[in-house]
């Protein structure tokens, strides 16, 4: 069996350094297949747009499209449909406090410092760290993240054990 993947699989949960324990509290809340419930939307359209702004702030468009173009906010919205009631409450409260800060009108720098300040709370659940983990994971497992931000090669056809990094230039997506 693929035990080396077991190691990697647990690392898979560590999107941008988020510990497996914290992200799983959100991810494991999923109760049914997102595709089944995709027709419904947990967030209303204003909040969904705001979440798009948030994920784009975390992973912005550079020479490759950012998290909003990759649909990461829509992915989180789909997943939220299946969070536990408690987790849904946390997300709703979090989005509420982001909205009431006048987030949309802030400069990029102010958006960043506002999001980072969300972690200035007591307790194990750090709201920004959770958002960052979900965004990283959603982005780099998206088609845009894999194909345009990272180096995507689904069928390598060969294994070359040692090459200069400059030949690839970035991390492999897979």
């Amino acid at each position: 069996m693929k035990r080396r993947d077991a190691i990697r699989n647990s690392a898979f949960l560590v999107g941008c350094g988020l510990s497996a324990g914290t992200i799983s509290t959100i991810v494991s809340g999923c109760k049914t297949e997102p595709t089944v419930a995709a027709a419904k939307s947990f967030l209303n359209s204003d909040m969904l747009a705001l979440l798009g702004d948030v994920v784009e702030t975390i992973i912005p468009t550079t020479d490759s499209p950012g998290a909003k173009a990759a649909g990461v906010h829509e992915l989180i919205n789909e997943m939220a449909e299946h969070f536990t009631t408690e987790e849904q409450g946390q997300l709703t409260a979090l989005m509420g406090s982001i909205a009431s800060s006048g987030f949309a009108d802030k400069s990029v720098e102010d958006k960043e410092s506002f999001l980072l300040s969300l972690d200035d709370v007591e307790g194990d659940v750090k709201p920004y760290t959770l958002l960052k983990g979900l965004t990283c994971q959603g982005y780099f497992t998206s088609e845009i993240g894999a194909k345009e931000a990272l180096a995507y090669l689904p069928i390598p056809g060969e294994f070359i054990p040692c090459i200069p990094l400059s030949e690839v230039g970035k991390a492999w997506a897979l």
Partner: peptide
């Protein structure tokens, strides 16, 4: 086992924005 380089699941020093993204797309 074996040796490999971390991918996008690696820990990051940068916390947000362009710096985070640029760090994450490097092995």
């Amino acid at each position: 086992g074996g040796a490999s380089r971390g991918g996008w699941w690696k820990p990051a020093e940068a916390k947000i924005g362009k710096d985070l993204k640029n760090e994450m797309i490097q092995p």
